[in-house]
Amino acid sequence: MRFAFVLGETFSGIRRNLSMVVSVVLVTFISLTFVGAAGLLQQQINQMKGYWYDRVEVAIFLCTDTSTTTSCASGPVTDSQRQAVQDLLEAPTAAPYVKSFDYESQDQALEIFQEQFKNSAMAGTVTADQLPESFRVALVDPEQYEVVNELFSSMPGVEIVSDQRELLEQIFSLMNMASVIAVSVAVVMLVCAVLLIATTIRLSAFSRRRETGIMRLVGASKTMIQLPFLLEGVIAALAGAVLASVTTWAVAEFFIGDWLTGQYPGTGFIAGGDALVLIPLLLLVAVLLAALSSILTLRRYLKV
């Protein structure tokens, strides 16, 4: 009875104040979607780190016809130079750092290139002799890249030693920046949402001041008087959070999970399932913010 009555009051308040409640829903929706996006980016970063750090290698690129570095002044790598690099990889100086290594010929490099860029017009124009052959070296400790660099970069026939982790770090830092931006936008939007909830509750309390006045007079408890307003704010924010959750999930499932994974297979993208972890967080943020701003507003504007 009591609960049904409180809910009834809540929904009559929402009906009377519908346009404000809708705006709370939308602002909460947008702001939490940004929170969700930041969450997805972080998940994607973690996923890629886990996926790539195992696979990332140091690549020792050997000279080609088109190489321009000074170590390649003598033209493309010769068989003996290639052998020297391989010997050093197997020698006791380098071996403690090297977990394993593979040789990648120019034809293999072309194959991989064409696979990666199969949707791009570039794939057809590149030929095998434009791509360097390389040794793909997996390190025991990926942090030890510098040692390997020093050992190999000055060898004749070696064009460059590149740490692929560095490339990844760049991608990660881009993604991190994107998620920082998303969080910043989310924070601003959440401030809007909090203020909007406060205004909505104020208006709602004002438009129902007759009812609350009578409630006070006949001795209704503080809970009975304030709870409908609190619930009004929380329900509106929760509705926004549900929309944001659905959006976040849909982005993870369809955009990242289906479309991006289809575009770049083997990159290790997250999917809709990963987004489910974020949903309780979004709902919790919505409830806490709405409850907090409602309580503060009610304390000021609805005396009991």
Partner: peptide, 10 residues
């Protein structure tokens, strides 16, 4: 209303 807000039964 005066009874409902005190949680009285229907």
């Amino acid at each position: 209303f005066a009874m409902q807000v005190l949680g009285k039964g229907r």
